[in-house]
């Protein structure tokens, strides 16, 4: 699978001296669901800002679709058209008091005409389930609703890659479920999704591929089944093991599951593995 986004030996230090990225090399395969894990301050958000051309690596390079990013006006415009970021705090994204105008901002910047913009806005609102909020001012919305508006505002630009910075933070369980389902739908439309999270259970069940960041470096990568069985890696990254794997290992140890049992990806698969009680 070709990589749509790549970071090669990217180093970045903030003006206050914080070394956020210390030579990060990773690639985002096209059409996949990628989870980037790491504790607070691991460098996830900084990396994401590089993928959108907001920050420029002090050393190293960013590649989009195989081409090195050149940071001139047109290259940045193209990159931002193809790579969208949904930031963690929706309040920092929403600048307009009108939901409709907020969502139309991105597509209008792409230079589309009014009709196309309207149909994209409509589609994005349907996908995120906020059509009923169209005439509401953004300051009357709840946190979860604002989050959806923020997602819709990026969806309406129809990027190929969408980066979600902690999309499930501060949300209630029902909203988390809905957001994850939405991510699934977006991915099925051949879009690449990158998401950062602390929630190991979500990352484990959802992702196709995982990167683990710690202190500005990639310290682990691989399929979630591999990454989350590596106890020392999880320890270094301050992460815990998903409960599904805990239960799976426990059942194996107590003889309820054969040693050769396949590793379950989610709750349904785990329940499927557990044999019926035989008398």
């Amino acid at each position: 699978m070709a990589a749509i986004l790549e970071a090669k030996a990217v180093k970045f230090t903030y003006p206050d001296g914080t070394q956020a990225l210390k030579g990060v090399t990773l690639d985002i395969p096209e059409g996949k669901k990628i989870a980037v894990l790491g504790s607070n301050g691991a460098g996830k958000s900084t990396l994401f800002l590089h993928f959108n051309g907001i920050l420029r690596p002090q050393e190293g390079d960013i590649y989009f679709a195989g081409t090195k990013l050149s940071y001139n006006h047109n290259a940045l415009k193209k990159l931002r058209q193809h790579v969208g970021i949904v930031f963690q705090d929706p309040d920092s994204m929403l600048f307009s008091a009108s939901v409709l105008q907020e969502i139309s901002f991105g597509p209008l910047n792409l230079g589309l005409d009014r009709g196309q913009v309207l149909s994209r806005v409509q589609k994005a609102m349907e996908a995120t389930g906020i059509t009923n909020l169209k005439d509401k001012p953004t300051h009357f919305l709840s946190y979860g609703q604002k989050k959806r508006v923020a997602i819709a505002s990026v969806l309406a630009m129809e990027p190929e890659v969408i980066i979600f910075d902690e999309p499930t933070a501060y949300l209630d369980p029902k909203s988390i479920k809905e957001i994850i389902a939405l991510l699934e739908t977006i991915n099925q439309q051949d879009k690449t999704i990158v998401l950062s999270t602390h929630d190991v259970d979500i990352a484990y069940s959802w992702a196709d591929y995982t990167y683990v960041l710690a202190q500005g470096q990639v310290i682990g990568k691989g399929k979630p089944e591999e990454v989350f069985q590596n106890a020392s890696l999880l320890e270094t990254a301050d992460l815990t093991r998903p409960w599904i794997l805990d239960v799976y290992e426990g059942l194996k140890k107590k003889g309820w599951l054969p040693v050769t049992a396949p590793v379950p990806k989610n709750k349904a698969e785990l329940l499927e593995l557990i044999p019926c009680k035989s008398n």
Binding site: L49, R80, F105, V117
Partner: peptide, 24 residues
Amino acid sequence: KRSRELFVALTSRGYNEELKFLEV
């Protein structure tokens, strides 16, 4: 801080020194 965040978020959506709006 918020105004900086907003600027970053607007830039990532193609902001180019003009706030464009869809007229209803």
